[in-house]
Amino acid sequence: MSDNPQSNVPSHSVASDERWTTVITPHRGWLDWRLKQLWRYRDLISLFVWRDFVSVYKQTILGPLWHIIQPLLTTIMFTVVFGKIANLPTNGVPPFLFYMAGIVGWTYFSNNVIKTSSTFVTNSAMLGKVYFHRLVIPVSIAISNLISFFIQLGIFLVFLAIYHFKHFPIHLTHWVLFTPLFVVMLAGYGLGCGIIVSALTTRYRDLTQLVAFGIQLLMYAVPVILPLSAVGLRYRWLMQDNPLTPIVEGFRLAFLGAGEVTLAQVGVSFGIMLIVLAIGTMLFTHVEKTFMDTV
């Protein structure tokens, strides 16, 4: 019985002599996140992840190859436009590897934000019919994006090896050990920002339009295209104080041996991520109980 997802934890104090399993009340605390209940829905999360992975590429010719083609084309485009034509500096790293390292991480973050931000609007039909822990949807999105992230990371490593044997010896640094942490942080930021937006879109639909544009704009404030070292002093703070910067720079430092990042910066970034996640969860919890009436 303890494994049943719907034997809910009582959200409020229970009448003394009787044992109620669920008490439905008009108000829920801002901090009543029911994370234990979320854990009991892990089967549903895994099924959603699997559904997203399987269903997207049904009736396509290239299928899961799209996971590879998309970042590859972006990398080639960046290499040609920013590397060859504009001749922007890349910290002495081959432009192709430099851009790919940035794009792989950035794509994971931006996909998380964009996809989770429409949680309520795109799933309103389902959410209006049955109850399950609402965070199941954004969490499953972050996990299913992780699959394509790992595929892309694999491609990146393949290219890294190719370059290693041809003309560019790799300088893996001890920062490689931080890679899992970087992935967690990208997931946390993506999820946090995504659910904040999703909570707000139940009221302001405009935000859905804004998100795609905002993410694109944000990319220029993170060293995906320009390395931190190449930014002029006047605008440097914009990139340096950005909590996403240490992740991207750290990732490059790990695999390409070039990047500016300190442990302290990573620590601060991690702390901010936790705050973003907490704010997101709070807003999400607040909105979920009545969103059906407004969407």
């Binding site: 439905i24 829920r28 049955v130 009545t290």
Partner: peptide, 24 residues
């Protein structure tokens, strides 16, 4: 909808014993 926790009541409360499933 309130019983199946899809939306919240404005006031009052519902107490339930056991797992509830809805075929809305």
């Amino acid at each position: 909808k309130i019983l199946s926790q899809v939306t919240c009541p404005t006031s009052g409360q519902i107490k339930i014993k056991g797992r509830i499933a809805s075929l809305l």
